[in-house]
């Protein structure tokens, strides 16, 4: 992990950067990595069950759907947008798969329909925020509520079973035998690499950082700020829908209310990962580390038999601590 992180700054490196700049690009991610390792060390000491390949892989597998949503949310927030509807999209995506399947449609086509629907919802968010110039917080709060409600209306609030071996493999399958790497983890990592590549190496990526860093200057330079943001809303919708498909495959059922409650974890991971809510700054690797930290915390505390109520308290405290430290770091550089 540490190897990959080293080549992934938001402003990727030309060799022989002076030391203080290396610090600038890396300090945030390095801090998260240190935090993660400390967490792993603590749980290793406290629980004999923690540091096993199986347990670590299960953390990755359980966090994959959150990681997916956060992977798309990171560039969107960096570009100056925000998508609160992403978890609701994941919820309705499972419902769409179940309904299509129940209507006799092939399960893979059903997945495709669900993912396209997610993209369409994202396009709608983008059109409202950038076309009508409405505040993204309010727009996506509204669409979140509409989509959540629609999922419940469509299903009557009931869970729809989806026990189809080929399909369930996406959620609970493993590559390389029973002790192998979980499929959701692989899907998530592929998405992270794609996002990193697009953000660090393509002109589109440059537009993401510029649009969020200074939208007015970007417009004055002829950068397509609105198009960039709309595309990212679409990406967020697609990622949400994919996350929903994975959750449905994992549970073997589409539960309309299964993902919505994880929205705060998604946003928390993005912020914890060092992305500025005001745009312009952040990286997907920071987000990935933050997802791992939140997942590890959850897993470790469960192994120690800490009640899930206390887990929420811990999660919030960690978020405040990390964001506070990050602010101190950024201010000390300014």
């Amino acid at each position: 992990m540490s190897q990959t992180t080293v080549s992934t700054a938001p402003t990727p490196a030309v060799r022989n950067r002076p030391k203080n700049l290396l610090g600038h690009a890396w300090a945030g991610v390095a801090m998260l990595l240190a935090f993660y390792l400390i967490l792993v060390a603590i749980f290793t000491v406290l629980s004999p069950f923690f540091l096993t390949v199986k347990n670590l892989l299960s953390i990755g597998s359980n966090m994959a759907f959150i990681g997916l949503m956060a992977a798309a949310g990171t560039p969107l927030i960096i570009a100056g947008g925000l998508d609160l509807s992403v978890a609701a999209v994941a919820g309705i995506s499972g419902v769409i798969v179940a309904m299509c399947y129940a209507a006799g449609i092939d399960i893979w086509i059903a997945c495709l329909v669900a993912i396209l629907a997610g993209g369409l919802i994202g396009a709608g968010n983008g059109a409202l925020t950038n076309g009508l110039k409405l505040n993204p917080f309010i727009v996506t709060l509204g669409t979140m509520s509409i989509i959540t409600g629609a999922s419940l209306v469509l299903t009557g609030g009931l869970t729809q079973p989806l026990m189809i071996p080929g399909f369930n493999w996406i959620g609970s399958g493993k590559i390389g035998g029973s002790g192998g790497i979980p499929v959701p983890l692989i899907i998530m990592l592929v998405v992270y690499f794609l996002a990193w590549w697009a953000m660090a190496f393509t002109p589109f990526g440059r537009y993401i950082y510029a649009s969020g860093g200074n939208p007015e200057a970007s417009r004055m330079l002829g950068i397509p700020v609105d198009r960039t943001q709309i595309l990212l809303y679409v990406a967020s919708g697609l990622a949400g829908a994919l996350a929903g498909v994975i959750v449905a495959a994992m549970l073997g059922a589409a539960a309309p209310d299964s993902v919505g409650k994880h929205l705060l974890t998604v946003i928390a991971a993005i912020i914890l990962g060092g992305t500025s809510l005001f745009g312009g700054r952040g990286s997907v690797w920071g987000t990935l580390l933050a997802v791992l930290i939140l997942g590890t915390l959850n897993n470790g505390l469960t192994l120690l038999n800490v009640s899930s109520f206390w887990q929420d308290v811990t999660k919030g405290a960690v978020l405040l601590l990390a964001v506070g430290l990050d602010q101190l770091r950024v201010r000390s550089q300014a």
Binding site: T11, R206, Y209, A210, G213, A217, L221
Partner: peptide, 19 residues
Amino acid sequence: REGIVAMLSLRENMSLANM
């Protein structure tokens, strides 16, 4: 406000209008 993206590098600011 309208000329630079302060947190991006000189290099990135230079190429922005001509990607």
